[in-house]
């Protein structure tokens, strides 16, 4: 609490505004994660948290520490850069996994509806083949 007593007003007001905005964005994103009905809608909720919430809080931190130390503190750019690079990759991988799993389940259900015996035979055949190879 001591370290920001000498902070000028022109730095503290934007920092406070950015902190409030970042907290609000984070809460909104996680509320979306909880409330949206389907998985493919739910994956868009955390995107707000990650980009806007994290961005606002990181800029606030950068502003505060730069003003306190009277030199540009750019460490936070590392986290920003890292998150901006990795977030699309993570969400793309989770989405691909979800699509794979859903398609596999749909195929299995459709095949069972068509001819349950064929699926049973198929499974038996597969397990026999596995046993042979192993």
């Amino acid at each position: 609490m001591i370290h920001w007593d000498h902070l000028p007003l022109w730095a503290s007001l934007p920092t406070a505004a950015l902190l409030v905005l970042g907290g609000g964005f984070t809460l909104t994103g996680c509320l979306g994660l909880l409330r949206l009905p389907h998985f493919y809608q739910r994956i868009h909720g955390p995107a707000i948290t990650i980009t806007l919430g994290t961005g606002c809080i990181l800029i606030a931190s950068m502003l505060l520490f730069s003003t306190l130390e009277t030199r540009p503190v750019l460490h936070e750019l590392l986290i920003t850069l890292f998150l901006l690079m990795t977030t699309p990759m993570v969400s793309m991988l989770i989405m691909r996994a979800a699509v794979h799993r859903d398609l596999r389940q749909q195929h299995r259900l459709a095949a069972e509806k068509e001819s349950p015996i064929a699926v049973y035979r198929d499974i038996q055949h597969q397990s026999r083949g596995d046993r042979k190879t192993s």
Partner: peptide, 8 residues
């Protein structure tokens, strides 16, 4: 500066 602690 009473705004910053409240925002935090």
């Amino acid at each position: 500066n009473h705004v910053l602690p409240i925002a935090l």
